[in-house]
């Protein structure tokens, strides 16, 4: 089973409270904010490594793919150190400002190029369902649409249930609000995973050494052969406006002196509301 994983470098979600907007330019201040591989991308990579390298099966290979500024190259190295076999970074000024439509278009072009070069089709493309910065849940679905492949998101389990040699049957469990849906089929497909699908492995010292010998390829817009008006801000049907920190407009009165007074006050408010 050969798998491609979409990786997204994002500002460290644990440092969310340090995100600031520059009031003059109205843009997010990214300098000095540490970037990491988005948590759900890590889950996707872990799932890919487990599926492609399952004992008792012919080992497949895992490729990591990201569209990001070139300073994020170390996130691809990290993916290699985790165990991916190859990594691809799409980096070009022309990709800047892309919304999910342009991003997925660009990623799909890269997938086609990798598949053409390797003369194969990936059985699965895995990604996080939703990223911690944008949180749209679009990219996995839209990449699948550009590639005209099946997509399933919110997947909390992926298994290869058939242990007969050469079988590529995949069983996937998708979580929706009221039910768990179990799907079965063979690739190719694009699957968006959730945080609870697995616990991603840590990078080890041996992984870092092995990563040195693995290929990390950087492609520009020219390498992909995409028209500049299909990429980046130019290729984005959504355009951003102003950014602001949300106003909440509530009074924040502080009427109580002790926990007991607070409890009494809360009960009073509840009674008044007639609950």
């Amino acid at each position: 089973m050969n798998i491609l994983v979409l990786i997204k470098p994002v500002p460290d979600p644990e440092q969310e409270k340090n995100i600031r907007i520059d009031t003059e330019s109205g843009r997010i201040v990214r300098e000095g904010v540490k970037h990491v591989i988005d948590p759900e991308s890590r889950n996707a990579l872990e799932a890919a490594l487990q599926l492609a390298k399952q004992p008792g099966r012919e080992p497949g290979f895992v490729a990591a793919l990201a569209m990001a500024p070139v300073q994020m190259k170390d996130k691809l190295t990290e993916a290699l150190a985790m165990g991916a076999d190859e990594a691809y970074l799409l980096s070009d000024k022309a990709f800047g400002g892309a919304d999910t439509y342009a991003t997925s278009y660009t990623l799909a072009a890269a997938v086609r190029k990798i598949e053409a070069e390797k003369e194969l089709q990936f059985d699965l493309i895995l990604a996080g369902t939703s990223s911690s910065d944008g949180g749209t849940s679009h990219v996995a679905v839209q990449t699948a649409e550009w590639l005209q492949r099946t997509h399933i998101s919110n997947v909390c389990s992926i298994q290869l249930p058939d242990s007969t040699a050469g079988s590529s049957l995949i069983r996937v469990i998708k979580r929706s609000e009221e039910v768990m849906l179990t799907f079965e089929g063979e690739g190719p497909a694009v699957i968006g995973v959730t945080r609870d699908i697995n616990k991603p492995r840590l990078v080890t010292a041996m992984g870092i050494i092995k990563a040195r010998k693995k290929p990390l390829t950087i492609w520009t817009i020219e390498d992909l052969g995409i028209n500049p008006d299909k990429a980046g801000l130019a290729g984005s049907p959504t355009k951003p406006g102003r950014l602001f920190e949300p106003e909440t407009g509530r009074a924040a009165e502080e009427p109580w002196q002790t926990p007991e007074e607070a409890a009494a006050g809360i009960l009073e408010i509840i009674r008044e509301a007639g609950i």
Binding site: T100, S137, V141, Q142, W146, S153, T238
Partner: peptide, 22 residues
């Protein structure tokens, strides 16, 4: 919803248009 989150972006690509999420 889990369903809507898959339908909306798919329609975005099929109709070559933008989707504002959440």
């Amino acid at each position: 919803t889990a369903l809507g989150e898959e339908i909306a972006p798919a329609l975005g690509v099929r109709f070559r248009t933008g989707v504002a999420a959440h």
